[in-house]
Every structure is written in C-alpha cells, then in structure tokens.
Design a protein around this nucleic acid. Structure first.
Lengths: 211, 211
DNA sequence: GTAAGAAGTACGACCGGTCGTTCGTTGAAT
DNA sequence: ATTCAACGAACGACCGGTCGTACTTCTTAC
C-alpha cells in the first residue's frame, strides 16, 4: 500500500531532480531579491548554479513558470522564517509583536541578500500586469491579513479598545515595515530597525485601552 | 558680445535639439516609472517617441548617462509639482502638511503613470551599486531633509514639543508616504490616500504640545 | 532479484530577436 | 560654412527558448 501514497495521476518525481529544482529556486530567490524577477535572466541563473540553460528548461517550461515557482519558494522560506514561528505565540498583541520582530529578525539575519524578497519584487511588479504581479499582490494581502487577524484577536481579548480602527492600524504597521526594509537595504544600519521597533511600539501603545 | 552669454566652454546647443532632448527625457521618466530604470530599453524608448535608436545617441553617450539625465528630469518635475509649492507655505507644521498634501496630490494627479518615480526606481536600484543608485539615494535623503527642516522650524515656533524625536517622526512620516504610493499603484483606490492622510494627522497631533 | 524499458535529467548546438553601441552619412539650423 | 540632429546599417553579446541526444534513475515484468 505504500506506492498508493504517491500523487494521484503523475508517478514521476525523481530523487536527484527535486534536489536540482530546489537548488535552482533557492538561487533564483536570492538573485531575484537584488535583480528583481524581471531582471533575473536564465543564463545568469544557470551559470550561478553551474548548470546549462537547457538544463534549467528540464524543470520549467517558461520564464514565467520559473518566476511563479520562485515566488512559491520565497513564500515557503518566509513562512518558515517569520510566519510560522510567530503563529506559535499567543494570539493578540503578543502575536503582532512576534510578527514584527520576526520580520525585523528576517532582515537582520539576511535570509535574502537584499532585505525582503516580496518588498523588492512587489515594488518592481506593481505596475506590470501579469500572473507574477497578481501572485505577489496576493502575498502582500495575506501578510496584511495576518496582522488584521492578530489585531482582531487583540480586540476580542480586550487588549486594544473596541473603537480602534484596525484597518488603519494595519496600514500604519505595514508602512513601518515597508520603509524599514528599504532603509535597511540602503544603509545596512541596525539603527533603522530600532526606528521601526519604536514606531510600532508607539502605534500599539496608542491603541491600548486606557487604564 | 552676445555670443559670450553662452556656456563657458561649449558653444553648441541647438534650438530643436533641446526640444528633442526634453521629449526624450519626458518619455523616459514615464517609462521608467513603470519599467524601472534598468528595464527601460533604448529601442522601446526611441520607438515610443518616434525616433531611431541612433538618433537618441546624438543626445546621450551611454545608457547610464541617459539614466542619470532621466533622474534629473524627474527631479525637476517633482520639485515643480510638489516641493516648490510646499515651500511657499508657512514654515513649520503647515509646511509639513503642505509637503504631504503635495505628495498625495502628486499621486492623485497621476503626474507619472505609476505613482512616485523615485519610489519605484529606488526600490529597484537599492541593491544595485552604481551612480544611478547613489543619485536616487541622495534624492530620497534630500526629501527626508525637507521634512526634517520643516519639523525643526515647527519646534522653533513651539508648534511641537521640544522633546519630540524629530528623526523618528521623519521616519514615520516617510513610512506612510512610501506605503501609500505602493498601495495606490496597486489598487488605484483613493481610500488609501485617506489612510495616509489620517496616519499623518495622528502622527502630528501626537507631536503637538499638550494644551 | 534482476533485466528491460519507460521516463526524468542534463547537455551542447542552435534559433530568431533584442540589447546597448558605433559608424558614416545626410539634411537642417546657426 | 560649420556644426548639430537624426538616420539606416551593422556590430557582438545576450535574451528566452527548442531540439536531438546521451546518461541516470525509477518502475515494471518476469
């Protein structure tokens, strides 16, 4: 019965192929963070991992498919590094703080070579219609949704006042994180992480119930 | 003696040439806002203004020179549209508000086809060393300096408390504007402009002297 | 258990097209 | 008459992508 655990119709994935695919996408994530998804060239990527261009096309039918897979790979890395750890913390304000600290740590840890993958790619694709853009926008919205959910739980727990405009608060939180990423990439100064930390702290303390 | 009024060493600019150069840079600004400075191709730009690629090279010796000139052109447009009008308002908080409103108006007016030229270009160049990047970073710093100066004047006028961390306030103001540009490009929803407006208002009212 | 064969992996060569750039030339403005 | 503005042609490099072909792994039949 163990062979029945394979995929429904395709019975094909090979052991060393998934390793290559992983190596390709890992390099693609890193390159795309500095070059952008459009600026990522097949030849450069292939050379960067010691493979031929045509070798890459054994794994991806087109550049767009590579781009979409690269986004998926970045999602996995980001989820494992930031989101999942934060989800282990208590719902409410504690989780908001965990998300923020997770993100700042993600930058400081240099998981990607130039800050947040999604910030770079999103800024570059925002005005360029297509499936990659749609996917990136969806990721951004889901990231905002994470904050919205945590804030809703904070309200339910009475940690923040019921009159607090949570959508507005999400916007202001995201603004801090969005700018800190950019400044971090440009200056590499840990002081900017502290500015974001302080900004978020002021934001949340203003939302807390008086008394 | 009228020829002596020309530039010190070069006595060359022709009447219709400066018009072409202006047309080129105008189109370059718009294209770069959506495609990025790297994604801007000579052929595409030439075709876009009904000119030959080689015709462009009568005005610019290299792509990098074109990029730098494009940044200068964008600076002129931004200064005329946002900065100079705001400078006419009274120093202090009024000027901070004028800068913010000028920027939001700049977006709403769609001066560039995809939000703020500098935000897009900066996000793309942040991790790519070179003269264009340095120039863009300098622009961003001068824009932040504009806020810093206005806030200093606000403190001198007693509009905000002396204990206010102005560098921090600049960071938080810039964060609002940075994110609102991105969201505006993605959603085209005027509601995001309102969120930025509200966020700035809360920021500034918190900085005002009690009483 | 193993041999046969199907399928995945990777390659080098090559395609048409576009990239940034150079050159020599022509026509128009000064 | 001089000089700039613009052109078409052409360049080498690289782009994304295809093709035929070897080698390797996995599945299947015996």
């Amino acid at each position: 019965m163990k062979s029945a655990t394979a995929a429904s119709l395709a019975r094909k994935p090979r052991a060393d192929g998934v390793a290559s695919r992983h190596a390709i996408l890992d390099a693609a994530c890193r390159l795309a963070t500095t070059h952008g998804l459009e600026g990522l060239s097949i030849g450069e990527l292939a050379e960067h991992i010691g493979m031929s261009k045509s070798g890459l096309y054994a794994h991806f039918k087109s550049k767009e498919e590579l781009q979409l897979a690269t986004i998926d790979a970045a999602i996995s890395i980001f989820n494992a590094d930031v989101l999942e750890p934060a989800r282990k913390s208590r719902p409410g304000l504690a989780r908001v703080n965990a998300l923020v600290e997770g993100f700042l740590g993600h930058l400081a840890r240099r998981v990607f070579p130039a800050g947040c993958f999604f910030a770079t790619v999103a800024a570059q694709l925002a005005a360029r219609p297509g499936r990659p853009r749609d996917k990136i926008v969806a990721v951004q919205q889901s990231w905002a949704g994470e904050f919205a959910r945590a804030l809703e739980q904070a309200r339910e727990a009475g940690e923040i006042g019921p009159g607090v405009d949570r959508a507005q608060l999400v916007f202001e939180l995201m603004a801090m994180l969005f700018l800190v990423n950019f400044e971090w990439v440009v200056t590499e100064d840990p002081g900017v992480l502290e500015k974001a930390r302080l900004g978020v702290k002021r934001l949340l303390s203003a939302a807390k119930r008086p008394g």
